[in-house]
Design a protein around this nucleic acid. Sequence first.
DNA 1: CTGAATGGATAGCAGTACTCTCTACTATCC
DNA 2: GGATAGTAGAGAGTACTGCTATCCATTCAG
Lengths: 216, 216
Amino acid sequence: MRVGELSKRSGVAVPTIKYYLREGLLPAGVLTSPNQAHYDDEHLRRLRLVRALVDVGGLSIATVREVLAAIDTRDDSLHNKLGAVQEAISQPSAAELDPLAVADVQAFFARHGQTECIDVTESNVTLMLAAALSSARSIGHDRIHELLDPYLEGLKIIAKADLEYVIQHTSPDDVIEAMVIGTLIGDTVLKAVRRLAHAEVSRGALSGSPDPDSSN
Amino acid sequence: MRVGELSKRSGVAVPTIKYYLREGLLPAGVLTSPNQAHYDDEHLRRLRLVRALVDVGGLSIATVREVLAAIDTRDDSLHNKLGAVQEAISQPSAAELDPLAVADVQAFFARHGQTECIDVTESNVTLMLAAALSSARSIGHDRIHELLDPYLEGLKIIAKADLEYVIQHTSPDDVIEAMVIGTLIGDTVLKAVRRLAHAEVSRGALSGSPDPDSSN
DNA sequence: CTGAATGGATAGCAGTACTCTCTACTATCC
DNA sequence: GGATAGTAGAGAGTACTGCTATCCATTCAG
C-alpha cells in the first residue's frame, strides 16, 4: 500500500506519517520508483504501536524511538530485551535524591531476597522508585516506604496475571511488544482501578457523616 | 518571609514563584507596601505541594490549578473532595472509545456490585479505563479486560494499605492533600514496583535458556 | 495528457513551562 | 542621605515538542 492508504487504515494523517518516517519511528517503505514507496502490514502494525505508545503510554517521540530500538534488538534474550524496554519507559524525575529515600529502597530490596546492597542509580526503575520516595519525603511524608511491602504483595498478584496474559495470548514473536503494551496500558488501567478502589474505600471511611455501615 | 527567602527555602527560583503567583497556583502574599509582600509557611507548604504535583505526578500547570481548587474547597465532604481531585488528576486520552471496551468496563462494574448500567463518560476515571481498553483493542489486544479482575484483587490490598497510611499518618486537615500525594506518588511507586515484579517474573519465565528452575 | 498523489525537504505553528526584562518602587546599610 | 539590594507586577521572549503546511519534481491513474 502507499502512504495514503496507510494513513486511511491507521487513522494517522499523512504529514504525521512522514514526520514519523523522518524521526525514524517507522522504517522507510520500499521505493518502487524515486517517488513511490510501498508499505506493508508491518508498517501499519508499527504505526499503530507508535500511536498506542504515544496515546496510552504518554511517551515522547524520543522515548518511543528508544522503545522501538529495544524491541527491534533481535539478537538478545527476551529477559534482557524486556529490561531494555523497561529502562526506556521508566524515566525518573530529575529531582535530587534524598539519601534516606535511597536507604528505603535498599532496605526494601534487602527485605526481599536481594542480599547485597544495590545501587539505585544503576537502573531507571529503582531510580524512579527512589525519586518518588524522595519527593514524598520533601513534602513531609517520610513513612511512604511503609507502603512498599503491601504494594509488592498486591503487585505479585497483578504481575502473575500479566505474565499469564502474555503467555496465553501472544505468539513468542510478539511477547516483547505485548509486554510493552501491557505494561503501559496496564499502568493506566491500574491507575484507574486504584482510583475506583479509593473511591469505594472513601465512601465508607471518609463520608461526611461518620457512618460505619459498610464494606470490608 | 519575602519571596527571596521563600525561594531559598523551597529551592524554586524567584521568577518561577512569580509565574506560579500569576498562574494562581500560589496565593498572593500579604502586601505590607506596594512592592513588599509577606509569605508564610502555608505558602512554602503549598509551593512544595505544587512542585511535588509537577515533578512526581507529572501534572501540567493547568491540572495543578484544578487539583488545588479541589483541595481548597472547604465546604464539601471529604469523599466528594477526593472525587473532585481524582477527576482532576485523571485526564483520559482523547482517542475514540471502542464500544466493546465500554462494554468491558460495564461488565466489570456489573461483576462487582454495581447493579445498574453505568455511563463511563460520566467520570474521567471510568473514561480513562475505557480509553485504555480501547487502545488495547485497537492494536489487537482484545483480551486485556480479563486482567481487570486480578488487578482489582491486587489493588484491594493496595488500596487498603493506602487508606491505613492516610489514617495513621495525617491529621484530618491534611487528609485530602495526603490522598493526592499518596495517589500520585503511589502511581509512580506502583509503576516501579510492578516493573521490578515483571523483571523478577521474566527472569524465570523468559530467560534465553528455557530453564524451569524457579519460583512459581 | 492531465490532475491527484507521492517522496523528500524545509519552514512554520501552537502549546507548555518557564525565564528575562523592565519599571517602578521600598528597605536597609553606611 | 545616598548607594545598593531586593521586590511587585506585567509583558515579552525562549526552548522544546509534536505536529502541520508548503514546496518541488516526479509519477501514477484514468
